[in-house]
Simulated assay, not measured.
Amino acid sequence: MRAVTWQGPKQISVEDVPDPIIKEPTDAIIKVTTTGLCGSDLHLYEPLSPFMTPGDIVGHEPMGIVQEVGAEVTDLRPGDRVVIPFNVSCGTCWMCAQGLQSQCETTQNKEHGTGASLLGYSKLYGQVDGGQAEYLRVPFAGYGAIKVPEGPPDDRFVFLSDVLPTAWQAVEYAGVGPGESLLVLGAGPIGDMAARIALHRGVQVIVADRLPERLARVAARGADTINVDEAHKELAERVRSMTGGRGADAVIDAVGMEAHGSPLVEMTQKVVGMLPDAIAQPFMKHASVDRMAALSTAFEAVRRGGTVSIAGVYGGAVDPIPMMQLFDKQVELRMGQANVRRWSDDILALLRQDEDVLGVESFATHHLPLDAAPRAYADFRAKADGMVKVLFQP
């Protein structure tokens, strides 16, 4: 089969690789019909390269048609249309029972001190083959695979794999309701979708980003917008002026460690990525730092007693956190990988409605063949050609 593979820092290629096979009785094999390119895939593109191996199959946002099931998979059968969550969770351990599927005790990666395994996401998270491929082996398929109805296009459901539950959890963790205010930092796929979910719930939403075309997308859905480059250091003050002088009731950081405004840290990440893995891996795990500009803005812009919900991915071990400011403002922090199956039934009920209330069918900006992946990764990283969300059709 054809699959998108990591070959080195900034080196993505589409290769012929062996077809997946059933390895465990709880596995299934699906033929992938649509698979997404995620912002966190860019972390593998360069910052997390010390934990990658040439030939790793990447991608964690797939859906498709079941081809084969293992002996213990009783509620799936060939021909079923399914979406596959990005986190690999068993559904039976204590963590899964608490709705913390991203911390699944069966697939935790204790060697690296990390949570549940993730599709296509490095040695840190299990080195499981990813979903940017023609076929995919799905572990714990009876629990993880989300059956979706026939009829609507793939775009209606594929975002159940990551974008929707990640954005949904970010809004849930923000804890805001009708009439309250929410600042979303970043209008990429997660920030955009979080804004749509919050607007659907009657929340006042303000979105800050650097790219006018991304701000135009969320403004068309009803959000207020701030261009970060125009606001400069006055962004938090702009937010206070739009929220009765207090600041936003909650802030979602949908940017993470790819934030602009930290050139020294960005250079450090690049240098570490060029070191031998034996040196780079412990540095990344115990001494690395992130680009903290977005998170610092969140702490400034949230009101006293408010909440900061972190959906953007961070990977540093010694990031400087302004504890005095957080304590003084009595800020609540919530964060973590999305627990997809915790939210998927509620989201699917919304997607099954006749009306496309979140605009998922027009959410993707680019539909590309799998062979276009190398160029798509480069363009997505450069934010070229108005690219916000890419879907591949293998």
Rank of each mutant, 00 (worst) to 15 (best):
G306H: 02
A220E: 14
D345T: 14
Q204R: 15
G36E: 01
L76P: 03
L37Y: 01
L48R: 11
V88K: 07
V73D: 01
C38Q: 04
L42V: 11
R2D: 08
G202A: 03
M292G: 11
V148N: 05
A372H: 06
T92D: 14
I84K: 10
H232Y: 05
V207Q: 05
Q127P: 06
T26Q: 13
I65D: 03
D80S: 11
I197V: 12
T114W: 08
L42P: 09
L215T: 02
L358I: 00
A278R: 14
K31A: 14
A219H: 13
P263W: 09
F380D: 09
K329P: 07
V272T: 07
V128G: 11
F283G: 04
R303Y: 00
V17N: 08
A28H: 12
S262H: 13
F327W: 10
P189C: 08
H60A: 01
V88W: 02
P276A: 07
A208W: 01
D129A: 14
Y135D: 04
G245M: 08
A28M: 11
P320L: 09
K389P: 02
Y143N: 12
D249P: 11
Q269L: 15
A220P: 12
A248F: 01
Q204F: 12
F157Q: 01
S117Y: 13
D154R: 04
A259Q: 03
L136H: 10
L351W: 00
Y143H: 15
P9S: 09
L185H: 00
N227R: 10
L348R: 05
A198Y: 00
L348M: 08
A145M: 06
V82D: 04
G386V: 10
G316P: 12
V171D: 00
P263C: 07
C104E: 04
E68N: 06
R77V: 14
Q108M: 13
R81W: 02
E172F: 04
F159T: 13
L358K: 01
F283E: 11
R341G: 02
G315P: 12
G115T: 09
G70T: 04
D75H: 15
I29Y: 02
G256F: 02
D155A: 15
D27G: 04
V148P: 03
V205A: 08
A250H: 04
A194L: 01
K23T: 14
H43E: 11
A317E: 03
D354Y: 08
T307R: 08
V88R: 06
V271F: 07
G64P: 02
A145P: 00
S181N: 09
C93N: 06
A287Y: 14
T106Q: 13
R375I: 08
P178H: 11
K123A: 15
T166G: 00
P394F: 00
Q330C: 10
A373H: 04
